[in-house]
Computed example of a mutant assay.
Amino acid sequence: MNSIAGCPDIDHILRLAALGDNFEAASACLQVMLKKLLGSSVEPKHLWNFSSLGRTGFPVEVAFVSDDPSLRITAEVTGPEIPPSERLNYAEELFSELNGSEIPPVLSRFVHSIQKEGSLRYGAWLGSRHSCDGNSFKLYMEVPCYPDNSPEVKAWEQAIISRPFTRPARLRMIGYNGDSHTLELYYDTTYVWPQDLPALMSPVGLRDYAGDVTDYLFQAYRRPVNWELPGASDYGFSYAVPCPYTNNNKSNSAFSLYTFANALFGGDHSIRAAILELSKRQGWDSSLYEEISRPIAHKRGFITHHGVFGIVMSSRGRASVTFGLTLP
């Protein structure tokens, strides 16, 4: 696989992921997923740092979930020469090629309509998941939200999931998973208090697990807390629900609470140490993350390769950790 000049070979990361017989298929999928990005006409120095995927500007992020050993990659679909308002078209084209089917037309028309009405930062991202069992793909679509969501967006949101207005929040992004046929609705907000979580989690039937989410977050934080969530005031959350535009309504629902890893832990060095310590205490395999993050093991400073850090609670009643890392 071609790599972005001067940056890590993504093919090497695939080998570290120990994908077995699926290695060649996963490599071929990533060739397709990244072909428009790697074929960008801009100079490499501009291609490496234009993205809003993470704090470093690098256009590819690797994500990890503590109870799932799959390799997860999210990437920009084009270079910066393509305006964000045009990237959803490219993303849908790539998603259809990889997934074997397009996103539901009703969903596509809705997102194209709302994107025309507001300013965009990135337009769309494309995600993939790779394991020994196969490959799956997810399309991330930006929702304009400045200064707030439009009435059209609010009406659509309430039709998908009746969210309580415990805290002011804006719908920032819609994800469509082509394997599970789920929608994920991503919000940003300001302060989230522990007492807000039961109501926030109730739309997906997880109200009774709010304490598990805060307990896991406090375990990761490793310092005493009082009555507020640790870290900065910049929190977000998401709901994963069955997509109403498909025939598959058997998938699990989930709630995720997010903040930025550096708000909780500090620089990359401290973030990495906290994650590896948590993985050891919780007994999940962090070997892939440990190897990929090794080049930044001693990196300090507030501009980090680590992005968001989140706690996920699914309808199975078990919490897990998720976090992203733009490539060193």
Results as ranks from 00 to 15, higher is better:
267 G>E: 08
287 S>A: 08
43 E>A: 14
188 D>F: 05
241 V>Y: 08
162 S>F: 12
221 Y>H: 07
109 R>P: 11
187 Y>S: 00
65 V>W: 06
247 N>E: 14
203 P>Q: 02
216 Y>M: 13
113 S>W: 10
269 H>I: 11
161 I>R: 08
173 M>P: 06
19 L>P: 04
146 Y>I: 13
241 V>A: 10
74 T>H: 00
184 E>G: 06
218 F>I: 05
187 Y>V: 01
22 N>R: 07
304 T>G: 01
182 T>I: 04
237 F>M: 02
283 G>R: 02
300 R>N: 15
290 E>T: 08
53 L>Y: 00
281 R>Q: 15
164 P>A: 02
106 V>P: 14
113 S>D: 13
284 W>V: 00
256 S>D: 05
18 A>S: 15
321 V>D: 00
229 L>E: 02
240 A>C: 15
181 H>Y: 06
258 Y>V: 03
96 S>Y: 10
202 S>F: 00
243 C>A: 07
91 A>D: 01
8 P>G: 15
253 S>F: 03
267 G>P: 08
262 N>Q: 11
214 T>W: 01
268 D>V: 00
218 F>C: 09
14 L>G: 08
304 T>N: 00
139 L>T: 02
7 C>F: 15
189 T>E: 00
218 F>L: 08
321 V>T: 14
321 V>A: 13
45 K>L: 13
152 E>T: 12
284 W>S: 01
170 R>F: 10
96 S>C: 15
188 D>Q: 06
190 T>D: 13
163 R>I: 13
209 Y>T: 03
176 Y>P: 04
199 A>Y: 07
265 F>I: 07
38 L>S: 05
61 E>R: 01
120 L>G: 11
162 S>V: 13
68 D>Y: 05
191 Y>V: 12
82 I>Q: 14
206 L>K: 00
58 F>N: 04
57 G>S: 06
245 Y>H: 04
48 W>N: 11
159 A>C: 10
49 N>W: 04
216 Y>H: 12
19 L>I: 06
20 G>Y: 03
